[in-house]
Amino acid sequence: MTTSAATRILIAEDQALLSGSFRILVDSEPDLTTVGEASTGAQAVVMARSERPDLVLMDIRMPELDGIEATRRICGSPVTADVRVLILTMFDIDEYVFDGLRAGASGFLLKDTPPADLLTAIRVIAGGDALLAPAVTRRLIAEFCRRPEGPASTPSGLDGVTDREREVLLLIAGGLSNTEISDRLHLSHGTVKTHVGRLLAKLEARDRAQLVIAAYESGLVRPSGRDGKAHQDVTSRALPPWRGAPPR
């Protein structure tokens, strides 16, 4: 029997077979429950407002309103600003990943993700973190490289961010978890969490995925090369190549 503490999931998928499969998978878990199924992007927006789920499992290609615009309306509305969105995508539509993160999505997974990994992703994102599949992360950076506006030539938009917070932001953009950042900078885990929290507040970011976007858009981190590898601004300390690992 589902308890009141269960994470509430809205499924937005126009293919009935997939939507039903997702519902069965979610409802098989004692800590998760579905609150409805939307077959169009417009319906997903309406149901997000009426049902107030913890998370929307969002398809990109849907009738009436695509998943990116639906995400933008859900995350951009004061009524549903606390609703998190996990987008499922395919290789042939990964060019939308950047726009999806800008719209407020907290994570992307490929549609061929194993069921156990999907359930883990739901719990991670509903818990307030962000998650990107490694293959999606690489394509995200490659897409950023192709964009004509690109990153700023010098770091900007980071007014009020301390030097230590910039170091933490660089490592977040490098795909490191809080534990890995703690080890790298020889800081306690609590101190790292404090820095991350301050970055979220100062940069008005929803989660780590938004911090990654901020790092690139400010020019603090610049993608380099066709393979989507990243490097830092020359004034910053050494940063390992983008690892693409989901944060823990």
Rank of each mutant, 00 (worst) to 15 (best):
F144I: 07
T162I: 04
G128D: 02
A133T: 05
P151F: 06
P148R: 15
R226G: 01
S224N: 11
S188N: 06
V124K: 15
D129F: 08
A173H: 05
L119Q: 10
K111E: 01
G160T: 05
P155C: 09
L110F: 12
E143L: 02
R123K: 14
R147Q: 13
R146K: 15
V212R: 15
A116Q: 13
A121C: 06
G197W: 07
R222N: 07
L199I: 03
D163I: 03
L169K: 11
T191A: 15
N178H: 13
R198W: 02
V168Q: 09
T179R: 15
V212L: 14
A142Q: 15
R184F: 04
P114Q: 13
I181D: 01
E165A: 10
D183F: 11
R184N: 05
I122A: 05
I122F: 03
I141R: 13
L169M: 07
K193D: 01
T137I: 00
D159M: 04
R146D: 01
L185D: 01
F108E: 00
V168E: 02
S177A: 08
D227P: 00
V221S: 06
A214R: 15
P151S: 15
L185R: 14
R226Y: 06
E143A: 13
C145H: 14
A173T: 03
G228C: 05
S156T: 13
P155E: 04
V124H: 11
A126Q: 03
S224H: 14
R198H: 14
D112F: 03
P223N: 10
E143W: 08
R198A: 09
G160V: 04
R198S: 09
V161I: 14
G175T: 03
T191V: 06
K202Y: 04
P114L: 11
A135L: 11
L176C: 08
R198C: 01
A116N: 11
A121N: 07
H195V: 01
V212K: 14
R164D: 02
L131G: 04
A126K: 12
D207W: 11
D183P: 00
S182K: 14
A201I: 01
I122N: 05
S218T: 03
H189T: 04
A209S: 13
R208N: 03
P114I: 03
R146V: 00
T120W: 13
R184E: 03
